[in-house]
Amino acid sequence: MKKWQQYLKQSDTEVLDDASHYVQEDRPDRVVTAIRSVLEKTNIAPTKLTHDQAE
């Protein structure tokens, strides 16, 4: 990970010590949080719809 962080100095990384190769299966909560954070920072997060708006 440290080597990738050196190459991608402006990227955000999060190390999940309690997850293995299939991070999405092992820690879906942390993966979703990280993805949402990136989307919010880049201002491309989907808007939240209320139940009435979705119909």
Rank of each mutant, 00 (worst) to 15 (best):
M1N: 03
M1Q: 11
M1I: 05
K2Y: 14
K3A: 15
K3M: 10
W4L: 10
W4Q: 14
Q6I: 11
Q6R: 13
K9Q: 14
K9P: 01
Q10W: 12
T13S: 12
E14A: 06
E14C: 08
V15A: 11
V15G: 14
L16C: 03
D17S: 12
D17Y: 05
D17W: 01
D18T: 15
D18E: 10
A19E: 01
H21P: 15
H21A: 02
Y22C: 11
V23G: 03
Q24P: 10
Q24C: 11
Q24F: 09
E25K: 06
E25L: 13
E25I: 08
E25G: 07
D26T: 00
R27K: 13
P28E: 06
P28M: 08
P28Q: 02
R30V: 02
R30I: 00
V31H: 01
A34G: 05
I35R: 01
R36L: 07
S37Y: 11
S37G: 13
V38A: 10
L39N: 00
K41F: 02
K41C: 04
K41R: 12
K41L: 09
K41T: 08
T42C: 04
T42Q: 13
N43E: 11
N43D: 14
N43T: 09
P46R: 00
P46D: 04
P46A: 01
T47A: 06
T47S: 09
T50I: 06
T50K: 06
H51V: 12
H51L: 08
H51K: 15
D52N: 10
